[in-house]
Design a protein around this nucleic acid. Structure first.
Lengths: 350, 350
DNA sequence: CGCCTTCGTGACAGCGCTTTCACATGAGTG
DNA sequence: CACTCATGTGAAAGCGCTGTCACGAAGGCG
């Protein structure tokens, strides 16, 4: 910066003012400084700047993985937003328990970001408390944490509407397929199960625990086993609501393999509306991770800017809507429309 | 840090030494300092540290998008590696031309990272030159740039082997489907087309320009059009080699829709081996973006550490292998094995 | 017993910026 | 014409660290 100052024949103060766009610089000086900066290929060091301002110009995100449709999509809408605000994006990927423990032990983000976005973690109370005294706004994304800024999808309503869709098609035996990860913990929201139950109750359909099964995500065999359990019930389901598209597709894959026609014999409904759903013409409940990323980013920027006067009590919770997207894997329950008659939704067999 | 020093009854120098793990600290002092740091929840400010050391402890990555299987997978293997080395990961997503221009104009990464990984861009010479005087090691990933450190897949060999696989199955009319992005530029490597040509030449099969067509990625309709062109040739192909799995799947989707059996009537081969390929039982040429991310990360760390003595002339180019994965969408050309006879690969119709 | 090492520690300068304050200039006002 | 006052600019302090240097203490050696 000293070089630029010298070349432009001004002081470093003026260079700093110019480069930050402060208004108290006369036009000709401004022009000289900008010219000099360009010629010297100068860029301010954020490090040095943040040392004195106390702001890092960085937003940190904590994600369980970068390798998923959801994260890719969310970050992809978050990144441009931050860039437009002149912020950098710092990614902490915490794929396993060891890393997780280490992160919460050392909190490497401390003092190295202006805000933290925590994606899709089921945090313990201690972990949340730890983040509380991180000294920066923390926004919880794709999860609801009481009393903390959160951005999330209304899972209950989504599952409620999804289940209603199946009920409206005449289904009464509707299975729900939960997801567990490798370590055996259910990680998607309990809200979806809740919405499913709520819809059945509201329709007067008795809840049957046999119809709620679990499967490991990304494991076709596990899906086959869950399916086997359902199909060998005394009264098998005529429709299956999977908590995630990926699981729904695994179910369809297995059903087709077993020559069980979808949706004629059994309807399948997913949740997410990821690209895979389109490829398989899967009916699903859509959520928008890119909206989530954008909302979370905007909330973060607001909180950063208002950290001066926290009196501003604007909305700190953003609840995003879902919507049911009927495609070709849900159809009226067999028999309702008479045998041999074309179902409402033309099954587009692949 | 001053607080920690006071609490431990030592100077800030000693605290700094302790926290950086330098050996010249006596055990009891070390213990006192560590205790004090823990109690005060202290974390050093990278900003301040980097101001004096000149190293930022950050690796920047430049990616066209975060929302793709390839990037997710590559970054997912890069991130843990950097974390283990105590480095932060800074992401610059450049989704369009405007952002791209802005990035190369201002080079925001300058002075704010120790190395830059540039993923999957077809850079102009000016852009490359611009990165040259960024003052940090720049590693080109998933692309080959002469004279610069690069990590890439051997596309030519991959396409060569893929095409040979089809030739070995008796195919002689083999189409190649290229990919263009929305703006009309072919963005995957020319190497794949080259490998395809090479294999045909080597097998004495004449090249036919009519068999090389283009399609937009992520556009089923566009794939249908390309397919239509091929199927209406006087002598249509018996096999199609798509430059990307996604395109291959779009072709299969359209073929099934048109009741053209895959692979009995036409074989389809992809390139990438992304998860979609598994879902569609697609034969493909596999590459490993996670290996690429890892190699790129290791190369970056090496270059950062050797920036002192650049005399070290270790390998600056890493070429990764591909491998052909035959699944259910490639089979011997019809007629070769006699009508009605089972093809070598049992078609696993979905 | 004096000298030279080695080891552990503290004082202090300075990294590249921002920000406060003081100062010069010229315009506006009575 | 003297005066405020707004405006643009520079000098200098200091943000929180690291790294150099100097220094005292302890140990080894002749």
């Amino acid at each position: 910066m000293a070089d630029v100052a010298e070349r432009a024949g001004v002081s470093t103060s003026t260079v700093s003012r110019t480069l930050r766009g402060l208004s108290t610089v006369s036009p000709d000086v401004r022009a000289r400084v900008e010219k000099a900066a360009r010629e010297l290929n100068f860029a301010v060091s954020r490090q040095a700047a943040s040392l004195v301002t106390g702001r890092t110009g960085t937003v940190a995100v904590l994600v369980p993985t970068l390798n998923s449709w959801f994260m890719g999509s969310a970050l992809s809408s978050l990144a441009p937003l931050l860039r437009a605000a002149g912020m950098q994006l710092n990614v902490y990927e915490i794929p396993d328990l060891t890393e997780r423990t280490a992160f919460f032990e050392h909190l490497p983000a401390r003092r190295n970001a202006d805000a933290l976005l925590v994606f899709s973690f089921d945090l313990t109370d201690e972990e949340t408390a730890r983040l509380d005294d991180l000294g920066m706004p923390v926004i919880y994304v794709s999860q609801h944490v009481d009393g903390r800024p959160s951005v999330y999808v209304d899972d209950v309503a989504g599952a409620l509407h999804g289940t209603r869709h199946l009920l409206n098609l005449g289904h009464r035996r509707i299975a729900f397929v939960q997801t567990v990860d490798a370590s055996g913990f259910s990680f998607s929201s309990k809200g979806r199960l809740l919405g499913y139950r709520q819809a059945l109750t509201e329709a007067g359909v008795p809840l049957d625990q046999d119809l709620v099964v679990s499967t490991r995500v990304g494991d076709k065999r596990s899906a086959a086993e869950a399916l086997g359990g359902l199909l060998s019930l005394r009264e098998p389901p005529t429709a299956v609501f999977a908590e995630m598209d990926e699981v729904a597709v695994a179910l369809i894959w297995n059903l087709r393999k077993s020559q069980i026609p979808v949706p004629e014999r059994i309807s399948v409904l997913g949740f997410d509306d990821q690209p895979l759903a389109d490829w398989f013409d899967l009916s699903t409940v859509a959520q928008s991770p890119s909206d989530m990323g954008r909302e979370a980013g905007e909330l973060a920027l607001r909180l950063i800017n208002d950290s001066g006067d926290p009196g501003q009590d604007h909305e700190r919770h953003v609840v995003l809507p879902t919507c049911v997207i009927p495609r070709a894997t849900t159809a009226p329950v067999a028999g309702t429309w008479g045998e041999g008659e074309d179902p409402l939704v033309t099954p587009d067999r692949l």
